[in-house]
Amino acid sequence: MKGNLRDFSPTQLLSLVSLTKKTGSLLVNYKEGDATLSFRDGKLVYSAMGKADGSLASILARAGRISEKQAGSLSQYAAKTSDKQLGLLLIQKGYITQEDIVKSIKRHSLASVNSFANWKEGAFAFDPEKQPDEGRITVPIDLENVIIQISRLQKKDSQLEEEIPSLDIALKFTNRPNVKLSELQLNKDEWRVLNYIKPDNTIRMIANKLNMSDKQVRRVIGSLREAGLVELAHARRRPEKLTEQDKEKKRSNVVRIINRLQSIGAES
């Protein structure tokens, strides 16, 4: 099974692998590095993506369970042995529990799938013979619910793209004098965005300032708009300046139209 994500989307691919309970590895060439997603009976068991090589040491480092320095020396150790042995050693030494390891690997795999789901193109090939190295720790993840969640999110994102087609637009607070911002239960990102709402700040400027992707900032603004807190401050075209004569003409026209409309229905 070979192709390009341009023609067959990541969610379609994941869904196919899950539904047909495939075993093997999906190899994808992507601009930011190659990715490998391995499956057993349709369940995701291992993932490596670009710099996130899927080794236990790097997963634990990214999860904040160990420092980068520790990860470096543990990687060297694991290279001589295996992730399984490294995990066993860490558990025996009491640095970490088995549950921590499973949770961290699961989180890593889900993050990989979520990131993969957003890829727009890249050659892919499914190799039914390729399985993760024997020494890797594999945690099976059922993909059905994950795919549903991703699809929902993607639908929501495309809806948000329609609603906020351009990020080069400012935001403004809606006119709700009774709402006390300090009493609202907003998440961290929502507060951060609210903090930057000013007539001169476009959404793109806010996203850059807060280091958010287009998608992230749209989601935050989407929920703030949903809550009725902010609205897009569309640049309004200024009304054309009318001379007194033109104004009078316009007023006269409007009054004549009103009179005419009022007569409709009455005339029959």
Binding site: P239, K247, K250, R251, V254, V255, I257, I258, L261, Q262, I264, G265
Partner: peptide
């Protein structure tokens, strides 16, 4: 037709009101 007429009239009243504000 009566409903449509009413909607258009309300729009026209708004146009007049805005002109008065100008």
């Amino acid at each position: 037709q009566e409903d449509v007429k009413n909607v258009l009239l309300e729009l026209l009243y708004s146009i007049l009101e805005e002109m008065e504000l100008d």
